[in-house]
Computed example of a mutant assay.
Amino acid sequence: MPKSVDLPLYLDNASTTPLDSRVFDAMTPYFLEDYGNAASTTHIFGERAARAVKESRQTIADAINAQADEIHFTSGATEAINLALKGAYFAFGQSKPHIITVQTEHKAVLDTCGYLEEVGAEVTYLPVDSEGLVDLDELNSSIRKDTLLVSVMAANNETGVLQDIKSIGEICKSKGVMFFTDATQAYGKIPLNVLDQSVDMLCFSAHKIYGPKGIGGLYVKKGIQLTPQIHGGGHEFGLRSGTLNVPGILGLAKATQLCLEEMEEVSTRLRKLRDDFETEMEKARKIKVNGKNAPRLPHFSNFQLLNEEAESFILRNRNKIAVAQGSACNSALVQPSHVLKAMGLGDKEGENSLRLSFGSPHIAKDFINKKLFKLFN
């Protein structure tokens, strides 16, 4: 028999999560038995697939207090972001070309805004303070008569810092501008309520919540008209054409359901795990936490190493731990984080920062922290 492999401790759940076995079980029948096309409802195979999609859409809508026909499935959050920003600009940009976003947004937002600038949009990139938070007064004063929308992420993908999206939504609502939030990291981790938080558009992705890769979605408040970015068949209420990924949609819905059911317990335990680690490491003067005084997702820890270079730590522990360094959204590139730079850190401080993102399997606190402490000593 082959020898068992001692896998590294996986602490990069903000990048992607393992598929929950319960999610896998929910998806399997739609690969092997109920494999019909959800748009082919003239026979029982298509009817079963369509029914499963309808139920899944309702589950996801209920999770954020939306209506089922306000949920549009995409290949993931990046596509949803492009649909939201490009769709809004190409629909209304001639009369309202101004967009407001934040310097610490995910590259999917920043690069899309950069493209829109090339085709005529005006974009204001708001700064953040040393904790990574937006100044709400500055946001309010930046809104103009020709402002189309405000795009502010709910939770930062590098630091886990939570923006006050309820207050941001209220400001946008009072000024009559659309509010889009990238909730990719927050979805399934903290309560989201699009009505209470005055959110007009919101994106999410399954692979951040123990679901499959390649499926996500965009909530679009009823009445908002977007220009479709993918044409050919009029699927998803005419907003996003293409044969539906039925197993993926089922997986997204099941993962959503599980996250909601277990949110309170998992959040409490992961927060304690994270806080115990940070307290011990700061006490030993080994790390300095970035964004420590801001509200954060319970499973995120972004910190500077004080006694060792991050690159040497990663190389030394390559077979022992999986963590993120530099900008987490640049494929195959390790660069000084634009998020940390916007928070006032220098290149060296940014390059020497690591992101640990715990996951729900990491409930054996004593074992995990004992193993972690050993790696950092």
Results as ranks from 00 to 15, higher is better:
H362N: 11
L354H: 01
L315W: 07
F358I: 09
S337W: 00
G346D: 07
Q304I: 14
L345H: 04
N330F: 11
S327F: 06
S357E: 02
I363F: 11
Q325C: 11
Q304R: 12
K320S: 07
I363V: 14
A322Q: 10
N319K: 13
D366V: 15
H338D: 10
K348P: 02
S327E: 15
N302P: 05
N369H: 09
L315V: 13
H338N: 08
L356W: 02
C329K: 05
P361D: 07
L315T: 15
S312E: 15
N302V: 04
A364P: 11
S353G: 03
S357L: 03
D366H: 15
R355H: 12
P336N: 13
R296G: 00
G326N: 03
V323C: 06
S331F: 14
R355E: 14
N330I: 12
V334F: 06
N307S: 14
F303C: 00
L305R: 01
I363Y: 08
I368V: 15
L297G: 00
E349A: 14
S353D: 01
A342V: 09
N369R: 10
S337E: 02
L356G: 01
Q325P: 10
K370E: 14
L315C: 12
L306T: 08
F300C: 00
S312C: 10
Q304W: 05
N319G: 12
N302E: 09
E308R: 04
F303W: 01
A322Y: 08
N352G: 03
G344L: 07
F367C: 08
S357V: 03
I321Q: 00
P295D: 08
N319R: 13
N307A: 14
A342W: 03
E311W: 04
A310L: 06
S357F: 02
P361G: 09
L297F: 00
A294N: 06
Q325W: 04
N317I: 01
V339M: 02
K320H: 09
A364N: 15
N369E: 13
L305N: 00
I314D: 01
A324T: 15
S353K: 02
P361W: 08
G326I: 03
I314V: 13
